[in-house]
Design a binder for these strands. Sequence first.
DNA 1: CTTGACTAACGAATGTCTTCGTAGTAATGT
DNA 2: ACATTACTACGAAGACATTCGTTAGTCAAG
Lengths: 131, 131
Amino acid sequence: MPVKPPDPPRPTDGELEILTVLWNLGASTVREVHETLARRKPTQYTTVLKLMQIMAEKKLVRRDESQRAHVYEAGRPREWTQRQLAGDLLQRAFGGSAKGLILGALSARKAPPGELAEIRRLLEQFEKENQ
Amino acid sequence: MPVKPPDPPRPTDGELEILTVLWNLGASTVREVHETLARRKPTQYTTVLKLMQIMAEKKLVRRDESQRAHVYEAGRPREWTQRQLAGDLLQRAFGGSAKGLILGALSARKAPPGELAEIRRLLEQFEKENQ
DNA sequence: CTTGACTAACGAATGTCTTCGTAGTAATGT
DNA sequence: ACATTACTACGAAGACATTCGTTAGTCAAG
């Protein structure tokens, strides 16, 4: 019987920033991630390195050590992690009420009308699936 | 010129559980919060007390010390905190895309058709306001 | 062969979150 | 008055999270 690998834990704030870079760039070295991150805020190279090493232990990223400069890749696709995070907040802060979470999101940042229309289409999609 | 009180920080997981109890019960003593919490998971009284004391320092809760058993109250209404948390996750994990967050939430937990209809009404409301 | 650049690894310091034991104090009952 | 109960306050321990300095290995150029 195959053993199912356990889900990696919820990423911390710092870890999520690195994952975002990896999702945007694809598999990258520490140097590439550091360069991207350092553009937005001052960060030491070894800080990024250490964080990514820990993330590898936690299985938040995969590491390819075949090259001298190890190549890191996000362990889960962006959508999977986003679903986890949304579901987690949904339970912890909204008692499972998707309506509450959506109201909170829309109140926090007024979405432009174009996006609202997209969201409406998304919703119709879900209603169709669930009928 | 009046000084605006700074926003309290994002509550941690444990703090959010306590806030949820306070929002449900209204102003309460540590004992009341502990009793409610202990029903769901084993927790020491002093653990809850300590957490609530720290939350008072952080202004996450207000404390009325006029009675021997201090009375605590959530520092911000539930909706305000929910909006903060939703907005925070929106920025950190979804690059500000409300559509992404909503997709994540709906994928994480299939909402019943009744709730989907409510969400659609909510959306129409927002489209009306934004036109 | 030596030097310098690049990289991983490690250890330590600091801060935060969570938990719990202990002490002191006020209220209550006998 | 004394013991018991109900609180608050405090300190410390353990687990993470974050940051950074230092060391050591590898490689290429001079």
